[in-house]
Amino acid sequence: MARYGMVMNVHACLGCRACMAACSQWNQTPFWAEDFKGKWRTRVTEIEEGKFPEIKRHFFPTICMHCVNPPCASVCPTEATYINKDGVVLIDYDLCLGCGYCIEACPYDARYEYELDDLKKDEFYFGEDARHHQAHVDKCTFCVDRLEEGLEPSCAATCVGHTRIFGDLDDPNSEVAKLVNTGEAKPLGNYMGTKPKVYYIK
């Protein structure tokens, strides 16, 4: 039993999007889609703030927040969406009806449709190693399969700027726990009552 969480140090993000590439390769998500906004488990969005000539640009990485009180799971009719023993919010693809209710309910835009066309592409690119075999809703899993082998999620392992810090929030000596417990890292949109386990240093 652990309580996995992630801290995003936004200041350290270079905008290289290596995390998006690593995630989409490992998890075989639709990198064949055309834009940086569509079907990704993690996105790095470019944000502009201020007015000319004082424009500041920075990059903002997002993933599923692995909420303690996830609206996506509340609306799921089949319990395809569930929380595992380590606090990771997952989807059982065999049970997913594909109603998309969770996509609409997630207030962090963390979910997307893995459609029949995407299945074909997955098979085209990965052949026998293809990991998606039915249409379903998809989102970040904190790379549960890697966690089981003692590895970090693929995005955190690849991160060039030490933006993505992953660990067990229950272990007071972990870097994530320290950043969260000192109040340096804060969750997004906590006013919604979702209690995210991904925190931001902004």
Partner: peptide, 27 residues
């Protein structure tokens, strides 16, 4: 129309799997 809107309409029978009845309005 609801079935047409599913990602894969052929999986509509799963709608009768109403395990989420305690919290989901679709169930």
């Amino acid at each position: 129309w609801l079935v047409i809107d599913l990602i894969n309409p052929l999986r509509f029978l799963l709608a009768f799997w109403i395990a989420g009845i305690g919290h989901s309005w679709i169930a």
